[in-house]
């Protein structure tokens, strides 16, 4: 009990919560990108993978609940910490100078994080709940089915991705969302190692340099899909 009070009640404890949930979420972001990139292996690979993810509802919901809890705790600690931070400096310096040595990403974590949260909500409604009104194609993604190789039918995720990203506005929002996510991670990854206490004098400079590189890899991996679709990738499945 005392541990929980200290974890959620102290400054360093809340940073630990923030970093630990961030670690879970960043691992998901990495896995999700690798999974998504199977779109380039063609419809069979992606649809089989999607059917596999959906095959065990208990595991699926357990993972979803863990991720949702992490998002909730991450946002809660962010809001709590930032309100404390604002209270600690009631009067700013003349002309609000930029803090020494602080990168743009490090100064805008709350803003980038909240916009990413809004994007995630849209993304879930778009491709997971598949709300027809927000996909701007005039078609319901729920109706996209194909015959499964083992009999029965399965969701045609490949066609959904091609249809979805052929809408330029949707792809643009995706680009902005993923861009801000990677800006968030270019600082967040390093801060995560710092807050978890995993960073040392020796590996600190390496982690500081590697974080933006990893963020760029994630960005390029994610945006390659809508860009390829906008350039015509996979349009043959629509006929």
């Amino acid at each position: 009990m005392n541990v929980l009070v200290r974890l959620f009640g102290s400054s360093v404890g809340k940073k630990l919560v923030m970093a630990a949930t961030g670690l879970v979420l960043v691992l998901f972001v990495l896995g999700h990108m690798i999974g998504n990139l199977q779109v380039f292996l063609g419809p069979e690979a992606l649809n089989r993978y999607a059917a596999f993810l959906q095959s065990n509802r208990e595991v699926l919901w357990a993972v979803r609940l863990v991720l949702l809890t992490c998002v909730g705790l991450h946002v809660w600690s962010a809001l709590k910490l930032s309100s404390e931070n604002r209270a600690a400096r009631p009067l700013d310096y003349d002309g609000r100078p930029a803090p020494a040595a602080a990168t743009y990403a490090s100064r805008t974590m709350l803003m980038s994080g909240l916009i990413v949260a809004a994007f995630i909500l849209y993304h879930l409604l778009h491709y997971t709940v598949r709300v027809e009104a927000i996909n701007f194609t005039g078609k319901s993604f729920l109706d996209l089915k194909e015959a499964a190789p083992g009999g029965g039918e399965r969701h045609d995720v490949f066609k959904m991705v091609i249809l979805g990203f052929r809408q330029p506005l949707v792809s643009l929002f995706y680009l902005v969302g993923v861009g801000l996510l990677c800006l968030h991670l270019s600082h967040g990854l390093r801060a995560m190692f710092q807050s978890l206490g995993l960073l040392t004098h020796k590996c600190g400079p390496l982690i500081a340099r590697a974080a933006p590189v990893v963020a760029w890899i994630l960005f390029l991996g994610y945006v390659s899909i809508p860009l390829a679709v906008l350039l015509g990738f996979g349009k043959e499945v629509l006929h």
Binding site: S11, N85, A88, T103, S106, M109, G197, G204
Partner: peptide
């Protein structure tokens, strides 16, 4: 307030105390 690892403290520290000490504290 709370550390957000911006590195401003390290940049102005007259004794060049390294940010990695905060990781040690954590």
């Amino acid at each position: 307030g709370n550390c957000t690892v911006t590195g401003s403290c390290e940049a102005v520290c007259p004794k060049n105390i390294n940010l990695a000490f905060i990781a040690r504290l954590n």
